[in-house]
């Protein structure tokens, strides 16, 4: 199952660090700051404040050993399909990031529109020190169709 591979405990500390950096660098070049992205990030920021902030915190640092940080992790910067899937299906499993484990369940956010999920993820992928490519509504739509 897809989620299991996302949350698999086999992800070594060094691997996740490297993955985060590599994605951040390459994606940073690809992204630039186009007007479209800026608008999406601005909309995503509002959604983040209303929906995500309580658990993941204003600075994206999460809550130690409860709610995962969103800063330079492969979960955020890596495979877009896995990231979109976490939002649509939620996550109820141990997550390992840099040797720490995070266990609080995340509720599914499937009630959000494709554009809203794209916006909030684009915001997260370009905040808290993250730099990664935008996520487009069409990408969310494709993942949603697949997991239904």
């Amino acid at each position: 199952m897809l989620l299991m591979s996302v949350a698999g405990v086999g992800m070594a500390q060094t691997k996740s660090k490297t993955a985060g950096k590599a994605n951040g660098n390459t994606a940073g070049k690809a992204t630039g700051s186009t007007a479209g992205n800026t608008a999406s990030i601005a909309r995503g920021k509002v959604l983040y404040q209303n929906i995500c902030l309580a658990c993941h915190q204003a600075d994206g640092s999460g809550v130690p050993r409860m709610n995962p940080p969103l800063i330079r992790t492969s979960f955020v910067l890596g495979d877009k399909t896995k990231l979109i899937t976490i939002l649509l299906k939620g996550l109820n499993d141990d997550v390992e990031i840099e040797g720490e484990y995070y266990s609080n369940p995340m509720p599914p956010q499937a009630q959000l529109k494709d554009e809203e999920i794209a916006d909030v993820l684009t915001f997260v992928r370009n905040s808290f020190g993250n730099k990664a490519s935008a996520i487009k509504p069409a990408e969310v739509k494709a993942v949603r169709a697949k997991i239904k």
Binding site: Q57, A58, D59, S61, G62, V63, P64, P69
Partner: peptide, 10 residues
């Protein structure tokens, strides 16, 4: 403390 990750000790 704005977020708990900032706490040096708890």
């Amino acid at each position: 403390i704005k977020s708990p990750g900032q706490a040096q000790h708890r």
